[in-house]
Design a protein around this nucleic acid. Structure first.
Lengths: 163, 163
DNA sequence: CGTTTACTGTTCGTATACGAACTAAAGCCG
DNA sequence: CGGCTTTAGTTCGTATACGAACAGTAAACG
């Protein structure tokens, strides 16, 4: 049903505004709703909404990722933490800053390398993690709820290939 | 106390981090890298990077979505456009605003309903769409490149269920 | 040893994304 | 008609996300 041949070609440039490209039929079928990037964005929006509902609006998915990673492997430098949680060094800085301000993280200068400082969970951070890891699992479960067990495995396998 | 045979490795940063929940074994296995939300975020990051490379940094995926939707179905109100492109009314406002400022969109008040105005592509907007729809297709192709044809269909089918 | 390169963290600017609260106008209904 | 609800669009505030450019230090290497 979907045209898969993909012969690339030609754009007529001199055109009138009101007649859309697809209406002229000159560009084969670029349907927004079928583009993987657009679908991905919507799935992530749904996930984020579930996260807010279940885990709570005072913790965002990115902030949770930081707490979870630190709970998982312990303290590490800010930049490494960013890499482990898929954030660039500007983003991780902001996230850490806000979590420190809320008392969930503690930072301390690394004596071996004065450029970096080690970041770890505070007792309050550990408590928040312990308290919300259940809801966080629920979010994962609910996100995948429309799929059966076999489909879930397949999806995670395929998505992981695209990371 | 649940002591499984899974040895949690410490990082060699030479510090005594808090004892993590997973190290205590009190929370069964919440591994960030296996959570669908975390994977989704990474896949979207990869897609966004490809988009910037291929389509160009002066157009974001969301801006492209607006152009593509308008090219597909023609003019419509701002809020409807937002719904069609999966943006809330605040986000779509900002996106439209920036595209109007760049001359890619035109707006005009709806005489039948003075609250709303109709948004459509300007000639310049149509030209930009025609010029970049090819690269945009490339982005979709490259994003899915790690998968074979069968896997791509499966992924899109599964993702669509989670929208 | 000193130079070059790489890494850590920073600030600045721009662009999504969304909750909350608001104005104004349309639609509905008794 | 008048009142209630819904919708279209706006403003404000906060939180990712990332490119670009920067300073300071570590590491590599000749």
């Amino acid at each position: 049903m979907v045209n898969r041949g993909v012969p690339e070609k030609r754009e007529g440039t001199g055109e009138e505004a009101e007649i859309s490209a697809s209406q002229r039929g000159e560009s084969r079928d670029y349907v927004l709703d079928e583009q993987v990037g657009f679908i991905l964005r919507q799935v992530q929006q749904r996930h984020a909404a579930l996260f807010t509902t279940r885990v709570g609006g005072d913790l965002t998915p990115t902030q949770w990722a930081v707490l979870a990673k630190l709970a998982e492997v312990g303290g590490m430098s800010q930049n490494l933490l960013g890499r482990q949680t898929a954030m660039d060094n500007v983003t991780i800085k902001g996230v850490v800053e806000r979590l420190v301000k809320r008392g969930l993280l503690v930072t301390r200068r690394d004596p071996a390398d004065p450029r970096r400082f080690s970041i770890s969970l505070s007792p309050a951070g550990s408590a928040v993690y312990a308290e919300r890891v259940g809801p966080a699992r629920e979010v994962t479960r609910e996100t995948l709820e429309p799929l059966d067990s076999e489909e879930r495995d397949a999806l995670l396998r395929l998505l992981s290939k695209l990371r």
